[in-house]
Design a protein around this nucleic acid. Sequence first.
DNA 1: GTTACCACTATCACAGAGTATACCAGCTAT
DNA 2: ATAGCTGGTATACTCTGTGATAGTGGTAAC
Lengths: 127, 127
Amino acid sequence: MEEQQMLALAQEVLSTPRNPRQEVQALQDTIYVVGGKWRLPIINSLCNGNKRFRDIERSIPGITTRMLSRELKEMEANQLIKRTVTPDTPVLVEYTPTDYCHSFGSIILEMIRWGKAHSEHLKKAAD
Amino acid sequence: MEEQQMLALAQEVLSTPRNPRQEVQALQDTIYVVGGKWRLPIINSLCNGNKRFRDIERSIPGITTRMLSRELKEMEANQLIKRTVTPDTPVLVEYTPTDYCHSFGSIILEMIRWGKAHSEHLKKAAD
DNA sequence: GTTACCACTATCACAGAGTATACCAGCTAT
DNA sequence: ATAGCTGGTATACTCTGTGATAGTGGTAAC
């Protein structure tokens, strides 16, 4: 990415809203799509290079096999991920994020940034 | 904000993760705090300048008085907003976002960006 | 005097998100 | 052979976030 583009992005990101109606709709759409406790952590895990069921499971504290299984199925149906089975022995199942899936990257990064800042905030407040 | 700072921000936003353990924790913390259907739309509405109960309500499609009331109360308890009562006649109640509340700005903007891009995506797919 | 706005609160009810636990078939290393 | 890995399913349960509906007390306009 070029410097110019990055500046433009930063400016757009930081600009003030223009059309509240449209923007609240966009916001609610996004909340609907990434809603729930597990979508974004799963996408994050996949984008971090985890491909196999148990690896993804282990990378997300607190998730159960049931929830992971359910979410992966739904995300495959929604074209967010691709499931590939290699029928060697032993069988290998791999989940890979699609381009569409990668489009959540900025949201996830902002949320990680916020979470880190928040924990710093709590540390300081503990003094 | 200076150009230098903005560039640094853009670079940080777009950088690849380093510490997956810490980052997944930060992500889950954030999801916990902004979880639910209404938090972010309410914060967005407040940041757009809405102060009064009915104004906020009207600015968020689908929300009920009950949910708005509940969320506002909890957000006040969590120092996200300030509630000010002016006991003139008629009584005036105003909700204003705290600095802490403003810290969600980047997340909201990214989600609005995603939502807009998503609707463009759907329009194109309709062809 | 009745309609309507403001700022809510109360009660009831429910789907479905999420949890807990157990289990399965197939493979593999010891 | 038995313990452990992989990639899941099945069953049962909780629980809470959310929705629907109604109502309150005060003010003000027509």
